[in-house]
Amino acid sequence: MADERLLEVRGLKVQFATEDGVVHAVDGVDFALDRGKVLGIVGESGSGKSVTAMTILGLTRDVNTRFEGEVIYKDRNLLDLPENEMQQYRGAEIGMIFQDPMTSLNPVYRVGDQIVEAIQAHEPVDKRKARRRAVELLRQVGIPNPESRVDDYPHQFSGGMRQRAMIAMALSCNPDVLIADEPTTALDVTIQAQIIELIDQLKDDFNSAVILITHDLGVVAEIADDLLVMYAGRVVEHGGKRPLFYDPQHPYTWGLLGSIPRLDRPRSERLHTIEGSPPSLIRLPQGCKFRPRCPHAFEKCLEEPPLENRVETPGHLDRCWLTVEAKRAVRDETIEGGEPAAA
């Protein structure tokens, strides 16, 4: 089957007007998603990855929000759709799983009823049929005894089970795109792997595509096909998983790779970190946004580098002025860390 393009985001910019000034939450994001693929979006808090995801679903719409660019889903620009039409896309065409399963389910309704509500929002089925489907969905996401657990309230579920229920709800109308916004951040490590595997398997069962948002490269390493590294609302590196892991081009990606705890290396005194903190999205630094924290910054970095292909691998884009040779020379040292560059 030829790759079927489901979703394409072009030049997306999202700005929030606040009392302190305009927040450039997303400042130029492009990517495409084909059926059956998993796109990983990686970045720190405040890098714009969640805003990107919520904007695709139109959840950031507000009087104080401005959008630019396009979000093309099956030939329609979702940014232009009026609210009542957008509703028909939410849940039915694009499902979303949120970060904290503890608070993402309504505490006063039964889990099953919340899934039934999602089904009935889009399909004219009676309550009994919808309920039977809810039981079936809970079984598919691995909830034991779904016939009785369907009548439980969220507080009677464990964190992992709630996230499974959230996944069941997101998949209840068989969406073509599933957006998972840090689905494992609030869960135990052992449950994390299960949830990621579950998402991967359900993607095949439901023949959909997945956008997996995380700040943990280890999480996406398993199932992503493509990776998008975001920093300060911009894409700083974009490419296939293998090239990005084995030939990372942007110093920020190196920093992320370096900060994964690894068992196959001798344990250093402290886990390597990226020095400093992300810039304010109201007053962004001049030039490359990562410049103030980058150990390899030089004069040219005062001008912002474009996102383009600089390596041999086609489709591997990055936003860094360093030559490929220079990068390869200093890269391993930066990833391995040891002494922080600033010291």
Partner: peptide
């Protein structure tokens, strides 16, 4: 967060308000 979930499900503003927000 659960209000955001309700919106992501595709419920209308009115449904979100009466069923999820007001009840709580």
């Amino acid at each position: 967060d659960f209000v955001r979930t309700a919106r992501a499900k595709g419920l209308s503003r009115r449904e979100v308000l009466t069923k999820h927000v007001l009840r709580n």
